[in-house]
Design a protein around this nucleic acid. Structure first.
Length: 291
DNA sequence: CAACAGGTCGCTG
DNA sequence: CAGCGACCTGTT
């Protein structure tokens, strides 16, 4: 991996596993925009970044080398060796297909609070609507960052900022539906109990899950997503309807309850189950496996 | 117009 | 504690 700055752009070369489309559309992130030139623009920690895949390199616009190393290397999980992970997982023939299909996927390390709220919204919901709700929430309660020819950008609100939202506002403007009270209760629980989501980083995975399950709107699937996309728990295997279908169709070969699917995944994929989940999700949804 | 979509909650037995 | 219906919203 080679990283350097040139003409106000940060360039990444010699990275074999980086496909912006796969990264942003594999279901882990909601704050990205696909641009006309095929690049993707994303917002993270109050910063706006444009990412363009070229033939043999990735071009980042809107940052500099120093900030890139400080913020974006961790965000894009660039210190993780995906080739090695894929090699470890390659004992499974079915998974090899999916991995080849989505070999440019990387698991982003996103903000804890943003993931908590985003995945509460994701419950029984669809990606376009989830994105819209998060956009409205950022616009109304976050801070204005900047503006370009395409749109205005706002940061995802802090806990304090989002505590300005009433249940009614969340429903009326953000269109979160019955998740309005869950968001409101979760925000107020963090505030009232003075919960520090950063302090969760050091918890063991099972303890972390227990803590996350205490929030309103957080069940097993949502907790697993938060752990995988924000707490670097590569061993967890979130089971949604898509993954359920993929696992039933390709691996277990019969209808199986969600709880047993997670167990099976742990048995088959081990400590890299979360990475396997991302490859399978992307593959399964693109190819409509089981539908 | 009914069904459905990236689950969770709350109520039963 | 497993099972099951209800649930916003917007699209098909």
């Amino acid at each position: 991996m080679k990283l350097y700055e040139e003409n106000n752009l940060v360039i990444l070369e010699d990275v074999e596993n980086f496909d912006a489309r796969a990264i942003f559309t594999c279901g882990q992130a909601f704050r990205w925009y696909e641009e006309k030139d095929g690049s993707f623009t994303t917002v993270h920690l109050g910063r706006v970044l444009n990412v363009l895949n070229e033939k043999d390199r990735v071009v980042f616009k809107g940052t500099n080398l120093e900030e890139f190393k400080e913020i974006w290397v961790d965000y894009f999980d660039l210190n993780t060796n995906y080739k090695e992970i894929r090699k470890t997982l390659s004992g499974n023939e079915i998974l090899v297909n999916a991995m080849e299909y989505g070999k440019g996927i990387r698991i982003l390390n996103q903000n804890h609070f943003e993931m908590l709220i985003s995945f509460i919204i994701s419950a029984n919901n669809m990606i376009p609507r989830i994105k819209k709700s998060i956009e409205v929430i950022s616009m109304r309660y976050g801070k204005f960052i900047c503006e370009d020819e395409n749109r205005k950008y706002y940061s995802f609100p802090t806990v304090e900022e989002l505590s300005n939202a009433t249940v009614e506002d969340l429903r009326e403007f953000a269109k979160v539906g019955f998740r309005d009270k869950r968001i409101f209760d979760t925000v107020n629980m963090i505030l009232n109990d003075k919960i520090d989501l950063n302090s969760f980083e050091s918890l063991e995975t099972d303890v972390l899950r227990e803590e996350l399950l205490k929030f309103s709107g957080v069940g097993n699937k949502v907790a697993d997503c938060i752990m995988l996309f924000s707490y670097k728990r590569g061993e967890v295997f979130p089971v949604d309807v898509w993954i359920k279908r993929v696992m039933e169709k390709l691996f277990i070969k019969q209808e199986t309850p969600v709880k047993k699917i997670a167990k099976e995944a742990d048995r088959i994929f081990g400590k890299y189950a979360g990475y396997a989940q991302q490859y399978l999700f992307y593959y399964g949804r693109e190819e409509k496996i089981g539908k």
